[in-house]
Computed example of a mutant assay.
Amino acid sequence: MRGTNNYMAISSTFASWNGDGYRTVQMSRPTPNPRGEAFWNSTMGHAWVSQQTVISEIFMSVTSVSLDAAGAKLGEHVIDIGCGTGDTLLAFAEAVGPSGAALGVDVSVPMLDFARHRAAEAGLGNAAFALADATDHIFEPRWADLVYSRFGVTFFDDPVRAFTNIRSGMKAGGRLVFVCFRTMPESPWFRVPIEAARPHVPPQPPVDPTAPGMFSFAREDRLRGILTEAGFREIAIKANDVPIHGKDTTQSMAFITQVGPLPALLENASDEQRKRATEAARNALAAQIGADGRGLHVGLWLVSASA
């Protein structure tokens, strides 16, 4: 794995910014679920670190659209839920400036340590990190002007409880902004390779569409109900089709075979089945992606609400 050997120390505490300086707080214990702490500290978490540059480029438009919607302002306090390797957290730390603060929350040791390293290299002293599950992490009460997430909130085992807890750390009238996927058929960048690979692997068991995962918030009514029950107001959920910026088929496949939905499809396949499925996925993408790496999009919900 590239670029992570120096950032793997596991700590049970973290530094939290309280407006005047850092304070050390005991780490919250993550809620167990199939896409929880163990999953993001396994090879999946390491893959996100090793592919950080690729992922940043691929989700360039997603990041731009969602950060514009968040509209972080100078001096604000921002919480980034599921901040991962730090792309959006670093952007927030720069946007709010030294008079503001940005706290990144994630359950993944490799990703959070890499984000911490990137913040230090960039000289962003107003960025802090919590190795924790937002479901039961003790947030500073009424601290955040803005809570943001790029996909991270879709992995909660108990989303109502998680969003209720997140709201406890927001100022009255604070902004919640996040982006999540609609259904997989509405995201050709995922659908095309998956449909091409599926005939070459064993049949997959039915899955619960509301289970923690990339598409758990696909249903608008469920998403609105979760936020309403958690106490949020002025909820707006807008469909947005956003282009993907895979540089070429090779870069797109680097993501899809390691950190997209394809690994789950290949999990129980033989070596030969996996080879045929991967090649079919590659060919399907190559037929759709232009020389500029574009040609397919993902279907998103752009969500906003007030605490």
Rank of each mutant, 00 (worst) to 15 (best):
R161T: 15
V201Q: 00
A230D: 11
L176W: 04
G225V: 09
I166P: 00
A211K: 07
G173S: 07
A211D: 11
A236D: 11
I237N: 05
A239R: 14
R191P: 00
A162F: 08
F181Q: 01
E195Q: 14
R161W: 08
G173W: 05
P193A: 11
I235M: 03
E186K: 03
N240S: 14
R224D: 15
I194F: 11
G213S: 10
A230Q: 10
H245T: 14
E195C: 13
V207L: 06
V160F: 04
V201T: 03
A196M: 07
G174S: 07
P212W: 03
V177E: 10
S168Y: 06
G231Y: 12
F178Y: 15
P243E: 13
A172F: 07
R222V: 09
P243V: 15
R222F: 11
A236S: 12
R191N: 07
P199F: 08
A172H: 08
F215T: 04
S168T: 15
G173Y: 05
I194L: 15
H245C: 15
E229R: 15
M214H: 09
Q204I: 05
A239T: 09
I226Q: 02
A197F: 03
G225E: 08
P212E: 05
T228Q: 14
I244V: 15
D208W: 09
R175C: 11
I166L: 09
N165R: 08
P209H: 08
N240I: 04
L176C: 09
E195R: 09
I244D: 00
A162M: 08
V242L: 08
R198C: 04
V242D: 00
T183F: 07
P203K: 03
V160H: 03
E229M: 14
G174Y: 01
A211F: 10
M214F: 12
R219N: 10
G225D: 13
D241R: 00
T228Y: 07
F178V: 12
P202R: 02
E229W: 10
A211M: 11
H245V: 14
A197S: 05
A211Q: 12
D241E: 15
V207M: 09
V201H: 00
M214V: 11
A211G: 09
P206F: 06
V242G: 00
A162E: 04
M214T: 12
N240D: 13
F178S: 07
V160R: 02
G173F: 06
R167G: 14
I244E: 00
A162L: 08
P212N: 08
P202L: 02
E220S: 11
A230Y: 05
A197E: 00
G213F: 02
F232R: 03
A218H: 02
A230V: 10
R198D: 04
P203N: 03
P185E: 12
G169A: 08
F163I: 11
N240M: 14
Q204V: 03
F181A: 05
P193K: 03
R191C: 01
T164N: 11
P199C: 06
S187F: 00
L176I: 08
G173V: 07
P203M: 03
A197T: 03
F181L: 15
P203G: 01
V160M: 04
H245P: 10
S216H: 06
A197Q: 00
R219H: 10
H200S: 03
A162G: 07
G231E: 11
V160T: 12
R222L: 12
T228G: 12
